[in-house]
Design a protein around this nucleic acid. Sequence first.
DNA 1: GCAGAAGTACGACCGCTGTCAAACTTTGAT
DNA 2: ATCAAAGTTTGACAGCGGTCGTACTTCTGC
Lengths: 105, 105
Amino acid sequence: MGRTPPHPEVSQFDLQQVLEALVDPVRRSIVTQLDAADEDVKCGGFDMAVSKSTATHHFKVLREAGLIRQYYVGTSRMNALRRAEMDEAFPGLLDALTTRQATGR
Amino acid sequence: MGRTPPHPEVSQFDLQQVLEALVDPVRRSIVTQLDAADEDVKCGGFDMAVSKSTATHHFKVLREAGLIRQYYVGTSRMNALRRAEMDEAFPGLLDALTTRQATGR
DNA sequence: GCAGAAGTACGACCGCTGTCAAACTTTGAT
DNA sequence: ATCAAAGTTTGACAGCGGTCGTACTTCTGC
């Protein structure tokens, strides 16, 4: 592995794809956890109740939609929320999904 | 018919349900068309390329999520966007989906 | 080197959802 | 009364997407 997976550029962000990524509760939870975290989080560092292979799938969907950036550190894959870029492409969208009312906290 | 179909109250709005409603391109188009319209629009008044029965299905999903309010006028069913109520439940969400960037116009 | 940890890739399965056609209901107009 | 317009309901179908297990790859530490 070691190689960095492909990431779309901001100009290529697609609303349909972003919404399809965010509609899944597991993936939306990943996004809100990332938003609440101070640092980048490795794949195994999330609170979610699915198998590893399913988790990989979800991270891939998020990455291909442009919501997260992934890079390797040792055997761990780190995940960073692409906040600023998402805000640039779709202003207010992530804000609306990370509020107390939206997250239910 | 004649009877008004059931509508959820604001306190019952569910983000998951709302997102599932908005993730479909046909339904999101209905919402943006409603948002751009000055008046309520009857079911047949939308620009969409699906059969009538499919359209009925989409309106039902939107209504049950709380995104639209429906009422009869003669044989026509009118549709109104529940903007204020949606904004109250999930501030910024509809805004984010009705901008130029989001609608692609 | 070897074992373990961390993910990935690949198939398979299954349930959900968008789609349509056909038959039906209700209302308004002639 | 009849007929047409506007939606609804039901049933069927197809495709997609989330899920998992298993096998595989890479890297780290001993």
